[in-house]
Structures are given as structure tokens and as C-alpha cells.
Simulated scan of single mutants.
Amino acid sequence: MKKSALIFLILTALFEVALCGLYGNDIYFTKPKTWSEARKYCREHHTDLSSITTKDENQKLLDKRNTNSKALPAWIGLYSDANDTWKWSGGKKALFNRSRLMNPNDRNRCVAQNEEGWWKKDCEDEFNFYCFQSKLVLVKENKTWEEAMEQCRQQHTDLVSLRGESALIKTLQTCREAQTDHVWIGLRYLAGNWLWVNGDDMRYYARSQEKAPQCPAKSRHCGALSLEGQLWDSRDCEEKLNFVCY
């Protein structure tokens, strides 16, 4: 009976978020700053520096500028750390085509975008920049998965789904101040399948494996995002964690 009631509770809101599922928006600032100063400003007033994972996202950022400013470099959240690993600010290891960099052999570690492409620049150079403003809500209360879903639906819309690389990065940026090392997301194992409770497609797996774990242990039928591993994992549904809502 309890399982049937849970399935009904999940399915009553299926597809609701898919119709309005924006994770946030980007803002262009004409206030030249170093890369670190730009990130500090974005984190204090918004969420973080902007990330780009598709050509469409890249063009949307350019479209926020007027025609005369599209040639000017503007900081995005992409940088290379001391181990020469490319990352997104506040997000995760960056997966992108290195040929996108206009000057790949340059030793600078911070990236600025203009209409020609992405440029490795000295992080102390001062450029305009983009900030990402998240529309997601990090709830810093410890709840079971079902309690988290109920609270999201009562006070917001639903638990967040990770429908692609961009969504994963933006969710990680939103969770920078989480008080648990995992956060609940809207992923549940039911009737032999993993599903996003808002009906999003499961083709994208933000995991170390290409496929979702089949037949997980009975207690590990709920999905949580690991903030350290930057991937989702199956967890005990009765565990109490912070969570992220639309």
C-alpha cells in the first residue's frame, strides 16, 4: 500500500517541470575586472560565472551584448587549475572540444569569450564578464528523499533533474554552500527503472558509468548528487540530506 501511494504521489506531478524547466539565466556586465574579481562579484550578487556547454548557449551569451561589443573578450567560468585540469567555476571538470580555444598553446589559465571564439587570457587581465543567476533553490535542511520531494512540491515546484551537462554544472554551482556532501535530486528507482520524477528523459547519465545501476539494493532506490564526485549515485532513501528544488 505504501509503495502504491508513493508511485501515485510521484506520477501526479509527472511532466509538470518539463514545461517550465529553466535552471537560471545569464547576465552580461560591462564592469572590467580580473577573472577572480569577476567570480567574486558573481558569487556575491548572483550565483557564479557563466558556463557554456553547447553552441546555443554560447550564442545566447553573445546575444546579450550589443553588436559593437561582441568583439570584446568577456570572462566566462572556464579555467585551468594548477594540475592543468580544465574546470567550470563552482561546477565540475569541463568537457569541451579543445579546438574551441583560439590559442590552445598559450600558457594562460583563464578563458574569455568573444564572437571569434574562446581565448586563454592572463587571469589578471580586466574584461567584462557574464554571471549566472540560478533559479534553483538549495534547501539546507536534512530530509529523507520522500520528505524532500514533498517539500519541493509544496513550497516550490519539484526536485531538480539533471537533464544534461549544463544542468549538472548549474546544479553544482547552486549547491556550493550545501551542508551535506550529497544532495537529493529528483531521481527514483521504480518498477525496475530509474526515472526523473518530473518526466525528463533518462538518456543523460551524470555518472561514472554509461548506464544507470540496475537492480540496486532495496534501500538504495533514490538518487543523490555527490558534490565531491560531481556525479549522481544511488542512496538509501531514508538518509537525511540537503536537496535542490526547481
Rank of each mutant, 00 (worst) to 15 (best):
Ala148Asn: 01
Thr180Ser: 11
Trp145Gly: 04
Leu162Ile: 14
Glu147Trp: 03
Thr174Tyr: 06
Ser208Arg: 15
Ser208Asn: 15
Thr144Cys: 01
Ala206Val: 07
Asp181Trp: 00
Cys152Ile: 07
Glu165Cys: 04
Gly192His: 02
Glu146Ile: 06
Ser166Arg: 10
Trp184Asn: 03
Leu190Cys: 07
Trp196Asp: 01
Gln214Val: 07
Met202His: 09
Arg203Lys: 15
Asp181Ile: 00
Glu150Phe: 11
Met149Trp: 00
Arg153Asp: 00
Gln151Glu: 08
Ser219Leu: 14
Arg188Gly: 02
Asn142Val: 00
Val197Ser: 06
Gly199His: 06
Lys135Val: 07
Leu168Met: 07
His156Thr: 05
Glu210Met: 13
Ala167Ile: 00
Ser208Phe: 15
Asn193Glu: 14
Gln214Leu: 07
Thr174Leu: 08
Val197His: 02
Ser161Tyr: 06
Ala148Phe: 05
Ser134His: 13
His156Leu: 06
Glu177Leu: 15
Glu165Arg: 11
Glu165Pro: 08
Glu177Ile: 13
Ala148Arg: 03
Gly192Gln: 02
Trp184Phe: 07
Arg188Phe: 12
Glu165Trp: 03
Trp196Cys: 03
Gly192Tyr: 00
Arg188Thr: 04
Gly186Cys: 07
Ala206Ile: 06
Tyr204Thr: 06
Arg203Leu: 08
Pro216Ser: 10
His221Gly: 04
Asp181Met: 01
Ile169Lys: 02
Leu172Trp: 06
Gly164Cys: 09
Gln214Lys: 15
Pro213His: 06
Ala217Thr: 10
Thr157Cys: 13
Lys211His: 13
Ser161Arg: 04
Lys140His: 05
Gln209Trp: 14
Thr157Trp: 03
Arg207Ser: 15
Lys135Pro: 00
Gln209Arg: 13
Lys218Val: 12
Leu138Pro: 14
Pro213Thr: 07
Lys218Arg: 11
Arg188Val: 10
Leu190Asn: 07
Asn193Trp: 06
Gly199Cys: 08
Gly199Phe: 02
Trp145Cys: 01
Glu165Thr: 11
Arg163Ala: 13
Arg220Glu: 14
Gln154Asp: 11
Glu146Arg: 03
Leu195Asn: 08
Asn193Ala: 12
Leu172Thr: 03
Ala206Leu: 05
Ala167Arg: 05
Gln209Pro: 08
Leu172Tyr: 06
Leu187Met: 09
Lys135Thr: 12
